[in-house]
């Protein structure tokens, strides 16, 4: 059985922590990655960029529209996620538009770091 664990925090706080506190938090992440990596149970891990880089694609009046910023409604709940390797944000938008827009909205969040081979760089 696979489980997704989602991480929530106020933006801009982690960056302001003392380097030792940041280091401590990152070590915990690395320990989990090492533990599950060793037994072949680690899926994709990703750290997202800030919401300034976010876009949302949703249906409005029967056609897809691209809205700025993150998905901000409270009545809908997170149903799932994809991680796609796209050349630029245009391709990511084009990809989002291919999803069933009648039933959901799609938030695009560029990834800052990932353990996945397609990630643009390693921290």
């Amino acid at each position: 059985m696979l489980y997704a664990i989602l991480i929530y925090a106020e933006e801009g706080v982690f960056e302001r922590l003392e380097p030792e506190c940041q280091e401590e938090a990152l070590e915990k992440h690395q320990a989990i990655q090492a533990e599950y990596g060793a037994k072949g149970g680690l899926g994709a891990v990703a750290r997202l960029m800030g919401t300034a880089a976010a876009l949302t694609v949703r249906q409005q009046g029967g056609s897809p529209v691209v809205l700025d910023g993150p998905f901000a409604e409270t009545k809908e709940q997170l149903l799932g996620l994809y991680i796609l390797d796209c050349a630029d944000i245009e391709e990511a938008i084009a990809a989002a538009k291919k999803f069933p827009l009648e039933t959901a909205a799609y938030e695009i969040r560029p990834i800052r770091w990932s353990n996945h081979p397609g990630a643009s760089y390693d921290e």
């Binding site: 960029m49 800030g50 880089a53 630029d88 944000i89 760089y121």
Partner: peptide
Amino acid sequence: RAMIDEGRILIEKALR
């Protein structure tokens, strides 16, 4: 690199 990536995406977003 992380900052460059974010800067690049933001400028792509803006120019759209």
